[in-house]
């Protein structure tokens, strides 16, 4: 991994012999990872990790590469979280949180 690019470099401000700083930070290539801010990383309805698309969405095996974006996470007032797709089917039958049986109301939705 010792790739050397052939672009010309600038000598810039390198002439001062007695620097006040030893290094300058030119650039930072940062890498970060995001995940849903959830207590339990598995959706209790479909038993799939909330980071992955829910079972139904996987089954439809969306071919477009952005398909994943549709399958977001939803948090209830009880702080329990599920796939939005799974929960919206669930509340049609029973408007309670499947984990704590409290009345279901949406606190926030992931995006």
């Amino acid at each position: 991994m010792s790739g050397e690019d052939c672009e010309s470099f600038d000598r810039g401000d390198a002439d001062g012999q007695k620097p006040d700083k030893m290094f300058t930070l030119k650039k930072w290539n940062a890498v970060a990872m995001w995940s849903w801010d959830v207590e339990c990383d598995t959706c209790a309805i479909c038993r799939v990790q909330v980071m992955d698309a829910c079972l139904r969405c996987q089954g439809e095996s969306k071919k477009d590469s952005y398909g994943k974006q549709d399958c977001v996470v939803v948090w209830g007032e009880c702080n329990h979280s599920f796939h939005f797709c799974c929960m919206s089917l669930w509340v049609k039958q029973n408007n309670r949180c499947p984990l704590c049986q409290q009345e279901w109301s949406i606190q926030r939705m992931g995006k």
């Binding site: 030893m22 290094f23 030119k26 930072w28 995001w34 926030r108």
Partner: peptide
């Protein structure tokens, strides 16, 4: 909203210039 961000420092690279 609803996302947690974690820095993967071992994968980040910085470019330093020596003075």
């Amino acid at each position: 909203s609803g996302r947690r961000l974690a820095w993967l420092h071992h994968l980040c690279t910085g470019e330093l210039r020596t003075r």
